[in-house]
Simulated assay, not measured.
Amino acid sequence: MKKILMILLAACCVWAAWDATRPTEKYVVKATASEGDTLWHLVGSVMEREGDSRDVREIIHYAREISNIKGTLQPGDIVLIPIEVQR
């Protein structure tokens, strides 16, 4: 039983090391708000489409900051959404 646990631990360590060395693509997606859009919906849908698995609240914070959005989202507002995807 101890050998199996050690093998599993070693496999997890190898996988974590491999995952940490994968290249990460960083880019910004520009989205335009429509009537009824919220930042949560807009950012979440772009993140899902692009394959970004980070916390949507963190990305909303950054998107609000770099897009200079102070209050609520208005139709026609341009939202810059920072995306990070591991390939």
Rank of each mutant, 00 (worst) to 15 (best):
A20G: 12
E65C: 00
I4L: 08
K3Q: 08
V14H: 11
T24W: 13
H61A: 12
A16K: 13
M6Y: 14
G71L: 06
G71C: 05
T32P: 00
W40L: 07
D55F: 10
T24L: 10
Q74L: 07
I81F: 01
K30H: 06
I83Y: 04
K2W: 03
V43I: 02
D19P: 02
M6P: 00
I69S: 03
R64K: 12
R57H: 07
V29C: 04
V14E: 09
P82Y: 08
A31D: 07
R64V: 08
L8E: 14
T24Y: 14
E48Q: 12
I78C: 12
R57Q: 07
S67K: 09
K3W: 03
W18S: 07
V14T: 14
S34R: 08
R57W: 10
D37W: 01
V85K: 10
L8K: 15
L9W: 15
A31I: 13
G51F: 11
I69Q: 01
V46A: 05
M1I: 03
C12T: 13
D55R: 11
E50M: 10
L73D: 02
D77M: 02
Q74S: 06
E48D: 06
S34A: 06
T21M: 14
W40K: 15
L9A: 15
E58Q: 08
A31S: 12
L42A: 10
R57S: 03
A20N: 13
V29Y: 04
M6L: 15
G44N: 11
I66K: 06
S53M: 06
T72G: 11
I59F: 02
E58P: 01
K3P: 00
I7K: 09
L9D: 14
C12L: 13
G44T: 09
D37P: 01
S53L: 09
S34P: 03
R87I: 09
A16N: 06
V29K: 09
I59V: 13
A31P: 10
S45C: 03
Y27D: 08
E35C: 00
N68H: 14
C13N: 13
R22L: 13
N68F: 11
R64W: 01
G36L: 05
G44W: 12
I4Y: 05
A63H: 06
L42P: 11
I69H: 05
K3V: 07
L8F: 15
E58R: 05
K3R: 12
T38W: 14
G36P: 05
R64G: 01
T32H: 04
E25K: 01
D77N: 07
W15Y: 13
D19Q: 09
R22G: 05
L42W: 10
N68S: 11
T21S: 13
A10S: 13
L42Y: 12
H61F: 05
H61E: 06
G76C: 00
A16V: 10
I81H: 04
K26V: 14
P23M: 08
D37R: 00
E48R: 14
G36W: 03
W40M: 10
V79D: 00
A33R: 06
V43G: 03
M47D: 04
K70H: 08
R87A: 11
Q86I: 04
A63G: 07
P82F: 04
E50K: 13
H41M: 03
R49Y: 07
W40A: 07
D37Q: 02
L9Q: 15
V29M: 02
W18A: 12
D19G: 02
V43F: 00
A17M: 11
S34L: 04
P23D: 11
I60Y: 04
E50P: 12
V46W: 03
